[in-house]
């Protein structure tokens, strides 16, 4: 820090009642900010301390990894608006693309780490009340009379977009009616959603804590977490016959790390997700590890079901899927009209 920048900070700091100076200190070395999405809270809380130990052992430097959580789209927006993230670990590639479009992340980000920069995967499952009283076993059962569905808003939540796409893929591929069948299936489905929460965690709390709805469309890890937190005597997890492989990606925010001088530690942080320890921790928190050994060690924790991916021709990758389904005036806007 140069003397002139120091004095400038001092002047501005006193102008804002000391706040800026305090912020400048908070942004100093030895800290790393991971801006993530909703259901990863517990995983990254544990991973952050694991990484701090590894980094200390490797370099002798102390590091404090901080985390910020929220709906994936909202978090991407905050990074675009200036939240000083060193790394982003979001729910879908589209949200990182949105940051990359603003020039904060290099365009080739998805090729920089193995497996499309997704160190773990997940899928979409159903969480139902104990004993599955409405007998919901697969997607078509969701339309049974009297079933109320909880899922967050696809406009703000990454998980909600995966929920939507899983339902769409099932309808297109398994109900033999093509896109028209998918459209009417989802229209019916969203009529059974009383209210759309903004993030996956909000939806889980609505279902679990406030007792809303008969079924929660959820990330596999989120369903398992609710299961673990509230006891297996309250809920059952239902694996539908067909779902989608969700690949939550990670990236270093190039512009921020270069300005803050944190590139080395930020890159190490993301690489640590791919190490055996990182993979085992992901599996512990119910994310499907990429590493075969870690997956095998998890045993029957992750049932193998038939899954499609976002790169399937029916979607054609995130950019196309986003434009077709979730942008203003897209399929979702035509399908979901509140109060109908």
């Amino acid at each position: 820090m140069t003397l002139s920048s120091l004095s400038r900070r001092a002047v501005l700091g006193s102008a804002l009642g000391g706040g800026v100076a305090l912020a400048a200190r908070a942004q100093g070395a030895g800290q790393l900010l991971n801006v993530s999405y909703d259901p990863t809270r517990e995983f990254y809380r544990e991973f952050n301390s694991l990484f701090a130990e590894q980094w200390k052992a490797k370099t002798g430097q102390g590091i404090r990894a901080n985390a910020s959580h929220g709906g994936s789209g909202r978090q991407a927006r905050a990074v675009i608006d200036g939240l000083q993230a060193d790394v982003v670990t979001l729910a879908l590639a589209y949200d990182i693309d949105a940051i990359a479009e603003r020039g904060l992340i290099n365009a080739d980000w998805q090729q920089r780490l193995p497996h499309n920069s997704s160190p773990y995967t997940s899928t979409i499952v159903f969480l139902v009340r104990k004993g599955n009283p409405k007998k919901l076993a697969d997607w078509p059962d969701l339309l049974k009379p009297g079933v109320s569905i909880v899922t967050p808003n696809p406009k703000t939540s990454g998980g909600a977009r995966w929920n939507y796409l899983a339902a769409w893929a099932w309808a297109v591929k398994k109900s033999s009616g093509g896109e028209q069948a998918a459209r009417s299936f989802l229209t019916e489905m969203f009529r059974k959603v009383p209210v759309l929460d903004t993030g996956a965690r909000g939806a889980t709390t609505s279902f679990v804590q406030r007792g809303q709805g008969d079924v929660l469309l959820a990330w596999e890890n989120e369903a398992h977490l609710a299961f673990a937190e509230f006891g297996a005597d309250q809920f059952d997890i239902v694996y539908p016959g067909f779902s989608i492989l969700a690949e939550p990606p990670v990236a270093v925010v190039d512009r921020n790390v270069d300005r803050r001088g944190t590139r080395a530690v930020a890159e190490a942080y993301l690489q640590a997700l791919y190490t055996p320890e990182g993979q085992a921790l992901a599996a512990k928190h119910f994310y499907r590890p990429r590493d075969e050994a870690a997956l095998a060690a998890a045993g029957s924790r992750f049932p193998r079901i038939e899954m499609t991916t976002i790169d399937d021709p029916i979607f054609g990758g995130w950019k196309k899927a986003q434009a077709t389904h979730f942008d203003d005036g897209g399929e979702f806007d035509r399908i979901y009209q509140p109060g109908r």
Binding site: R8, L16, G17, G19, A23, A26, I80, L83, R102, R259
Partner: peptide
């Protein structure tokens, strides 16, 4: 006003001053 794409965002970034998503923003 002070976000990275706000009116004063570019100037603040150039001078390495963080207002929103930091304590000054909360105070304001």
């Amino acid at each position: 006003l002070f976000g990275a794409h706000g009116w004063f965002g570019p100037w603040l970034q150039a001078h390495d001053v963080q207002i929103v998503f930091a304590v000054p923003g909360l105070v304001l």
